[in-house]
Amino acid sequence: MSDVRVSNIRTRGAAVHAPRPKALRDRQPGRARGAGLALAAWVAGLLFFLPIAWMALTSFHSEQDAATNPPSVAASLTLDGYREFFGSGGGASPWPSLINSFVASTASTLLVLVLALPAAYALSIRPVKKWTDVLFFFLSTKMLPVVAGLLPIYLFAKNTDFLDNIWLLVILYTSMNLPIAVWMMQSFLSEVPVAIIEAAQIDGARLPTILTRVVAPIALPGIAATSLICFIFSWNELLFARVLTGVVAQTAPVFLTGFITSQGLFLAKVCAASLVISLPVLAAGFAAQDKLVQGLSLGAVK
């Protein structure tokens, strides 16, 4: 019995002092690497968020406190910048410009989706000949500098009485965002199973029904990501809106540039206006964040 006990003790001791498997030893550097990447991601996120937080804080300061150098972080808070932005001090109301931006961005995004979905369907699920050349042609239209096309578009708008017209911006934003929308949605629609489309065709479904009831629900994350990006591009566009609009079709970014006057730059008021004008984009991104992440990562994992 004593020999058996001694052998058991030796066996247990050998098990305790046995070297760990290689998989367990390799897991420790992986955890350290993951923690380092997570820390770097948090630092990068804070660096990107810091200017927005600083802008939000400055918007609640008075003009005197916002203009101090170095800035006063612990200064008293006030809503004077927002009151002046919304016209309580006798200035122009921002609501017409905000409505114009919303109409131009929303209408152009809807038109882009209506045009890009059939085009992406033809290039992915029912590919045409040399579809890669077609995609490159779509993308090459984005390589033209915007300034190069500004004068011809201005002359066209002037001769057709389209200056200061919101629908001219809708057409321009649609044409500007359509190439990138087709490029994005082609990659999203290529993930749609062809067997489902063939089953719908056997049941007698035609192309409009297939696009709206079969393809669109499956590719909804990609459509949401594409529409959000097109909306952001349209909302932030300044050059065409600054040149082609005046009073009636003025957009929110153009209205924001009006705060830089000969009297100087009113920093608190500009920060308040910038935060309010950024809210629709932030709200849209927050509302569609799950679809956006799912759409942008679509096809990344097989």
Rank of each mutant, 00 (worst) to 15 (best):
Q186P: 02
L238I: 10
L151T: 06
A119K: 00
N236P: 00
T212C: 08
L163N: 11
D133F: 14
V146F: 15
S187V: 08
P118Y: 13
L207K: 12
E237T: 05
Y121L: 11
P193T: 11
A225M: 06
T251V: 14
P193Q: 09
P152F: 09
L220Y: 03
W167K: 03
V170T: 02
F231Y: 08
R206D: 15
L115D: 08
K158F: 05
I171K: 09
Y173R: 03
A122Q: 09
R206C: 07
Q250A: 07
P127R: 07
N236E: 08
P208H: 09
A157V: 01
A122W: 07
N159S: 12
A249H: 03
I210P: 00
I218Q: 05
V247S: 14
L144E: 09
W183V: 06
L207E: 15
D133G: 11
A205I: 07
L238Y: 15
L113G: 02
I196N: 06
T160I: 03
I125N: 02
L151W: 10
L169Y: 03
C230H: 03
F188E: 02
F162M: 12
A181S: 15
R126D: 05
A148V: 14
V243Q: 06
L117I: 15
G246T: 10
P208Y: 12
T174V: 10
M176L: 15
V182L: 15
V114Y: 02
Q250T: 03
K130G: 07
V248C: 10
A116H: 02
E191K: 04
A219Y: 02
M184Q: 09
I153F: 14
K130P: 00
F137Y: 11
L151G: 03
Q201I: 02
N177H: 14
R126E: 08
L211K: 00
F162G: 01
G222W: 01
D164F: 13
I210D: 00
N165V: 12
Q186R: 12
F240C: 02
A249N: 04
L117V: 13
I223T: 02
L113M: 15
Y121E: 02
P179D: 10
V134S: 13
F137G: 11
R213C: 14
I153W: 11
A148Y: 13
V114I: 09
P118V: 10
L163P: 05
L150N: 02
P127N: 12
L239N: 12
T141Q: 11
Y173Q: 04
V147M: 13
L172T: 01
A200V: 08
F231L: 08
D133C: 06
V134K: 05
T132G: 04
A216E: 02
P145C: 15
A225F: 05
N159A: 08
V192Q: 05
V182I: 15
W131K: 06
M185Q: 07
S124R: 04
V112G: 01
L178K: 03
R242F: 15
F240S: 00
I166F: 11
K130D: 14
N177E: 10
F156E: 01
Q201G: 05
L144W: 14
T160C: 06
L178M: 09
T212N: 11
F233I: 11
L139D: 07
I197W: 00
V147A: 15
N236Y: 04
L113V: 06
V170R: 00
D133S: 12
D161L: 04
T251M: 13
L155W: 12
P127G: 07
V147H: 14
I196L: 15
W131T: 05
A205K: 03
L115N: 04
L244R: 01
P179K: 12
